[in-house]
Design a binder for these strands. Structure first.
Lengths: 207, 207
DNA sequence: GGGCGTGCTAAGCGCTCGCTCACCTTCGGC
DNA sequence: GCCGAAGGTGAGCGAGCGCTTAGCACGCCC
């Protein structure tokens, strides 16, 4: 599993964005939004980071909001794919939940820049764009809830409030993007392992 | 609309702010910052919500940032006080941790408006203001870590990584401010109870 | 009841924002 | 060798921003 940061290899999720100039602008926007927030970022700043004039942005994107929308959709699709892969592999519910949490957390820690924008700038989108993203979030939620329900059915887990616990598990993982620091003492892998253990305890696995 | 929300879990923390006009402006700022974020909020909006002209703001506060700074400091002090009260009461580590988590979560859920600003707008502060707030956050962290270490010493808890688990517990509680919705299916009390149970599982209490 | 500090407003300054427009370059097809 | 499309630039627009200033209303002390 490759990981380092965006450039180093939270894989290369932006490969699908073409042409090249549009991708460079998107990458610059991710950086800027993650650092200062959507509203505090200027289109001049984004274009500058991409080495272009302010006007160039509008050749590839209609508005500044379209940039955020594209980033958010691609990011959510990637996050959903990570969870789906873990949820639908072979193995017990315990193994699948541990896998889901650790890879989801690794993505939020290693690709903190992207994850921050994806998870915390949702409110800056307009109503229709937000609705589209919320639908993806429901799928994310359903994927995790599915694993927990599997574990309940097999007797592996012991959970009183399935929806509440699902919410807490996802909340715990997502908040990694807020506090994680690449220069800090922990690697994304370490946090992933720790969190998988904590989550298994939360669902009462292996008691 | 007078704040019925704050009273749910947080009494009236702004009573210390005088004179009355300054408090009304602060309250309006909390609402606006929570809704749209600091950078997307205009001074005209804040003054308007407080029923005053844009210029009135500058009689009581030097800058827009000073408003955020005051809100953040008062909010962090309140959060710290809540945790201190729970951490230093009589009782086993298990009881104190459950109390700390449930009351901390109640504050984040019931006073979601305030908590959102306090927890998510930290980066909008300047360097010295941010440093002051970060010191308060370290005290918050130390308070929770203290309870967990107590529980380890008495054999109540079973935790491998104390700092990591402390971080996760706080992260879980804080993120409540992001997703909690007063119109949703759960009351702050219910979430507090659920989370206290989940956290006790995370630290291996009552195995 | 005149003088004055306090708290507020209307008007507006200087600046920067998101975005547009007229024009320039490069390049493959014929 | 000319042509149009694609991708870029410099200059600048209207609007709205944070914040300031001149002046007004009002309570309070003498």
């Amino acid at each position: 599993m490759t990981t380092a940061e965006e450039t180093g290899g939270g894989e290369a999720p932006w490969a699908e964005v073409t042409p090249d100039a549009a991708r460079r602008l998107l990458l610059a926007a991710v950086e800027a939004f993650a650092e200062r927030g959507y509203h505090a970022t200027t289109t001049r700043d984004i274009a500058g980071r991409a080495g272009m004039s302010p006007a160039a942005l509008y050749i590839h994107y209609k508005t500044k909001e379209e940039l955020l929308h594209r980033i958010s959709r691609i990011g959510h699709e990637k996050a959903l794919e990570i969870l789906r892969t873990a949820a639908r592999r072979e193995g017990s519910a315990t193994e699948r939940l541990a896998d889901a949490v650790s890879s989801f957390v690794r993505w939020h820690a290693g690709g903190r820049t992207t994850a921050r924008v994806v998870q915390y700038e949702l409110d800056s989108l307009g109503p229709e764009a937000r609705a589209e993203i919320l639908a993806l979030r429901h799928e994310v939620d359903a994927e995790v809830r599915g694993i927990i329900e599997d574990g309940l059915a097999t007797g592996e887990f012991d959970v009183l409030d399935v929806r509440g616990t699902t919410l807490a598990v996802l909340s715990l993982c997502i908040d990694v993007a807020r506090w994680f620091n690449l220069d800090g003492p922990r690697t994304p892998e370490e946090v992933g392992t720790l969190y998988a253990d904590l989550v298994l305890r939360m669902v009462g696995a292996g008691k």
